Simulated assay, not measured.
Amino acid sequence: MKRPFRLSRLLPLLAFLALLNPVGGLLLVAVFFAPSGTPPLLHFLKGILREYSLVLLLPALVTALLTVYVTHSGRWTWLRWGAWAVVLLLLYAALTPALSAWRMARTHGIPLSFREYFRPLVADRPLPSQTVRFATVEGVDLHADIFLPDVRTSDARPAVLYLHGGGWSGGERGYARAWADFLTSRGYPVISLDYRLFPPATGLKAPGDVQCGIAWVKAHAATYGIDPAQLVLFGESAGGHLATLVAYATGDSRLPSSCDAGDTSVKAVISFYAPSDLAGHATRSGADSRRNLEGFTGVPLEGHEDLYALLSPLTHVGPEAPPTLLVHGGADSEVPLDASQALATRLGQARVPHQLFTLPYAEHAFDVWDGGFGRQLAQALVGRFLQQHVPVGDHPRP
């Protein structure tokens, strides 16, 4: 005769799970609060957890239920306080970013969507309408990916010229695909430009490549229905550094174009989480960032302060600088928030129209994940800035 099943037989297993869950929860919390200087993989995971923090409610709930059951049985009571502490930490990590995003959204009148929030991390992204070679410099071919709006118009429209990030040594123009749908759906052609990466050192070359790309776009603007006087440079991280440097240093003979070019000025500039003062960045950053800067410039900071200043957007801010949108994460462990704060201060002193938006919870590259609250906020901020400074006009919006 079979013995009746008793739930008490599962008690050892439940106790083991009650122990395992807090350990797993502590690991998640450790990733969530990972400081700067930790391995890149941890920063990558930290960024995902902060953008999709609400998923931490699930381990918090499971840990709480298991802890309640096991401690209620009268055994393993020593787990109780540690497990509840982990539950509280998980709840804090789950709710703080989401509440921060919602407060910012409410302050600025930006709607956030849970439906978008639960999209795949990386959804389908469009392919370029066309890829062209816009220059060959010192034997290196430079290409541009062109994304065009579906709705054609006889009027010339503003265009967004995108510069990818990657620490000046990596990344690719294909990163623009993450923004292409959003921008083209609002009527803006998007042109993602190559620039030379290090090694060898490209500190005095990459800005010239960007100018060469701007000149090519202006020369071929009529082909793509673009108004050459209404161009916006949009860069992220290292791309944001180049965007602001080129936008502010227009006409500086020390930073010439890589090819024959006339006017390379732009109407506006957008920079996400980018360094603005290379000397300050080298001083305050970790060893990896310093190595990147030395690879980009070709020299260490010591004894070459003038070169670092020349390659710093902060140095070139003046009254003629174009309107600027700065967006930065308050928890950025790659490029600290003070980089954008210092640039905003300098822009204010020069009376340049500008806006700085800080996402207090956000890590570096917070906007790359489709649907996350950070991406939703970033899209709204970019859309408003473009509409304010380079409106498409009567182009229909979805």
Rank of each mutant, 00 (worst) to 15 (best):
M1Q: 09
F5D: 03
R9L: 09
P12Q: 07
G25Q: 09
A30S: 12
P35T: 00
T38M: 00
P39D: 10
P40M: 02
L49D: 06
R50Y: 00
L66W: 07
T67D: 08
H72A: 15
W76P: 04
G82N: 00
A83I: 07
V87K: 10
L99T: 13
W102K: 11
R106W: 15
I110K: 00
E116W: 06
R119F: 01
P120K: 10
P120V: 10
R125K: 14
R125L: 14
S129N: 14
R133M: 06
F134H: 13
G139Y: 03
T153A: 15
A159I: 09
G166W: 12
G166H: 14
G170P: 08
E172K: 11
D181H: 15
F182T: 05
S185E: 14
S185T: 12
L193N: 01
L204K: 13
L204G: 09
W216A: 01
K218V: 07
H220M: 09
A222M: 10
A229H: 13
S237K: 05
L242H: 05
A243D: 02
T250S: 13
D252S: 02
L255T: 01
D260Q: 13
D263N: 11
S265M: 05
S271T: 08
P275V: 04
R284I: 11
R284G: 12
S289I: 12
S289C: 09
R290P: 05
T297H: 01
G303D: 03
P313V: 02
T315V: 06
T315E: 03
G318S: 15
P323K: 01
L326F: 00
V327E: 11
S333I: 04
D338P: 01
S340E: 03
A342F: 02
V352H: 07
Q355A: 15
F357D: 12
A365W: 06
F366R: 04
V382Q: 06
V382E: 11
G393A: 00
H395S: 13
P398I: 01
